[in-house]
């Protein structure tokens, strides 16, 4: 018996994750002391969470980095990558150098000292500023005053979308947060597009083609007859999308 073993294809998939970016500031010993103080106030804040070491503010060499990572590991902070450094300086044995980090909104840091900037991932540019957290506040909602016509897409990943008119058949509204439509919803509404399962969809009259919340979607072909043309809201309970009348 002879069976030929075919090489199995290997799949690579890209994924993004949220990580804390820690930006040490010289002198590192003082920074570690501040970090210890922050950990004291909120024990377990970093425990088990992936963190990225942002070296944009420092000029640490490889010889300095290795003990720093060890120090952090003793505090149960595991460094998964290094940011703001030249990849050429960091060979094997150290976490990989990451680029193109984007700031993430959402949870606030519990405590903040002037030096322990254990904020969430930020761009190197923002890091360079003395107060990286004091960035421009992003608008949390988008108001659309005109009807959304067939073929148009409203995409707002940062928060809620409010549409004063109707959303036509073949139109699409995608929001990071909830979607509120004060006219008829005839097209598609996708709320919680970044994975926010708390997002909801509200409309004054439902004739929708498709509703989606946090990736769970449902066509409205199977909508209960007595809900059609009525004001409704849709939300997620576990992995089930529920639709109920508002009046």
């Amino acid at each position: 018996m002879h069976s030929q073993v075919r090489p199995r294809p290997v799949h690579f998939r890209g994924r993004s994750y949220l990580a804390f970016a820690l930006a040490p500031e010289p002198p590192v010993t003082d920074w570690l002391a501040d970090l210890d103080a922050a950990i004291q106030r909120s024990a377990g804040f970093f425990a088990g969470r992936p963190a990225v070491l942002d070296l944009a503010n420092t000029a640490l060499s490889r010889a300095d980095i290795v003990p720093l990572i060890k120090e952090l590991e003793t505090r149960d902070i595991r460094i998964m990558g290094i940011e703001g450094a030249d990849p050429a300086d960091f060979g094997p044995g150290l976490p990989p150098v990451l680029t193109n980090g984007r700031p993430a909104s959402g949870r606030e840091m519990v405590h903040e000292t002037s030096q322990a900037k254990a904020s969430e991932a930020k761009t190197p540019d923002a890091k360079a500023k003395p107060q990286p957290q004091a960035t421009e506040p992003q608008p949390a909602s988008l108001l659309v005053e005109n009807p959304v016509r067939s073929g148009q897409t409203i995409y707002f990943p940062n928060g809620d979308v409010v549409v004063l008119g109707s959303v036509g058949s073949g139109a699409e509204v995608v929001a990071g947060g909830s979607i509120h439509i004060y006219g008829s919803l005839r097209g598609r509404a996708m709320a919680g597009a970044n994975g926010n399962a708390q997002a909801r969809i509200f409309c004054r009259r439902i004739e929708a083609e498709l509703l989606a919340i946090s990736g769970y979607y449902r066509t409205v072909d199977d909508l209960e007859v007595d809900l059609r043309h009525r004001p409704v809201q849709a939300w997620l309970e576990g992995d089930v999308m529920l639709i109920a009348a508002l009046d």
């Binding site: 016509r149 067939s150 073929g151 148009q152 036509g168 058949s169 139109a171």
Partner: peptide, 12 residues
């Protein structure tokens, strides 16, 4: 009607 809706979007 849906095609008209699409055209209105393009007009804008």
């Amino acid at each position: 009607v849906r095609d008209s809706d699409r055209i209105i979007g393009l007009l804008d």
